[in-house]
Structures are given as C-alpha cells and as structure tokens.
Simulated assay, not measured.
Amino acid sequence: MIHVRRATPADADELMRLRMVMLSGMGAPVTGGPWLAAGADLLRRQLADPADRVAAFVVPRPDAPDALAACVVGAIDERLPGPNHPSPFKGYVYNVATDPGYRRRGYSRACMQALLAWYAERDVTLVDLRASRDGEPLYAALGFVPTPDPAMRRISPAC
C-alpha cells in the first residue's frame, strides 16, 4: 500500500526540489536560484492558509521519510463561469513529479487520486493541467482529455 499524505508547510523545500525534477524532465535546463526560495516561501504560506485553496499530496521516500519520492500540487481558482461550466470554481494541477529512482511504483497516480478527491470534496468539477508526453497516459486514465483551447502567454519586463 502506498502511503500518501497531505503536505505541510515543512515540505515546501522538498516540493520545490521535486518541481526542479519535473521541469528538468520536460527538457528545460533547470538550475537553482532565487526562484527556489521564493517558491518555497509561497508554498509555506499557501499550505498554511486556512482558506484551503492550495493543497499538495506527497509520498515520502521509503528509505528517508523526511524526503519526498513524489508529489502533486493543486489549487482552486475562482473565475467567471461560462455556459459550459457554470461553477466559478476551477482546479489547476501545478506540479506532478516523482524522483527518477522511485518511478513506476504508482506514486504519482496515488498523489493525483488524493488531489482529485480533495477537489471532489470541495465540489470542484473542472480541473485543468498541462501534461508532458510521459504524463499523458496517467492523466487520460484518470479521465483528463485534451482540450481545443490554445494557450498563449505574455511576460512583461520586470519593473
């Protein structure tokens, strides 16, 4: 049986370490820097917030329980409803990662199932994510489907 637990603010540094694993696995050259500390600070605040709009679920490493083997981070956003989804609440999965040495054991699936149950408890019925090619089979098995909506992004220069 896989031991999945809800992450606490104390897990923030490990969650950011696994974010580096995820980003590296997507082909991006990833190095440390101030973004890691900023992300860990944000996660500590969000995971302690009583509004409960961000949750992370983790699997501790069997050989080092203070370290994490896998994680998922998700949030609930409140956005204007539309004709195809009248609820203002939407889920977004930010981070799914498993350390390379712990893959193919069902850890990411267990974390995702815990996050989807958390969404269901809050009546969040629409959940979005961006999938890597490696992750697509898992997400499809959990009921995710490709969308026709193209994504675009604008990044303004820092002030």
Rank of each mutant, 00 (worst) to 15 (best):
N84T: 12
P34L: 02
G25K: 07
R5T: 15
R154M: 14
A140V: 15
T31L: 08
L142F: 14
L138Q: 06
A51Q: 12
D52R: 06
G74L: 07
V72Q: 10
V30R: 01
V4D: 02
Q46E: 14
A97Y: 08
G82M: 08
E14P: 01
P150D: 08
P146D: 15
G91S: 08
G25E: 04
P83Q: 13
I2E: 01
R44K: 10
L115F: 11
S87H: 04
D52I: 03
Y92W: 15
L18E: 02
F89E: 03
V59Y: 07
A56P: 03
A28M: 12
L42D: 11
T98N: 06
G39L: 05
A110W: 12
Y94K: 07
L43H: 10
C159S: 12
I2F: 07
A120G: 04
V127F: 05
I155E: 14
R44S: 00
R109F: 04
V93G: 03
D149G: 05
G101P: 01
A97H: 04
A55I: 11
R154S: 02
V30L: 01
H85S: 10
A51M: 00
T147C: 03
G25I: 12
P100F: 02
M26F: 05
L116G: 04
W35E: 10
R154N: 06
V96T: 10
L15S: 02
A70M: 04
R79F: 00
A69D: 04
F89N: 01
D128L: 11
A28R: 11
P150L: 15
P148W: 07
L142N: 12
D123P: 05
V54E: 03
V145W: 02
A56R: 01
F144T: 03
A151C: 11
N84L: 09
G91H: 09
R104V: 03
G91P: 13
Y119G: 09
A140Y: 08
W118E: 04
T147W: 01
S108V: 09
M20F: 01
A55C: 11
Q113D: 11
G143S: 07
P81F: 05
P9D: 00
C111I: 06
P86Q: 09
P137H: 12
I2V: 14
R5S: 09
V96E: 02
P50L: 00
N95E: 13
C111N: 02
N84W: 13
V124H: 10
Y102K: 01
V4Q: 02
G33H: 09
A120E: 11
T8G: 15
A158G: 02
H3E: 11
V59R: 03
P65I: 03
D11Q: 01
P65M: 00
P148G: 15
M22A: 13
I2H: 14
G135L: 03
R122G: 12
R79N: 05
S108K: 08
L126N: 05
F144G: 07
T125F: 07
R103P: 05
A38W: 10
L36C: 13
D128E: 15
V59G: 07
R154W: 14
M16Q: 06
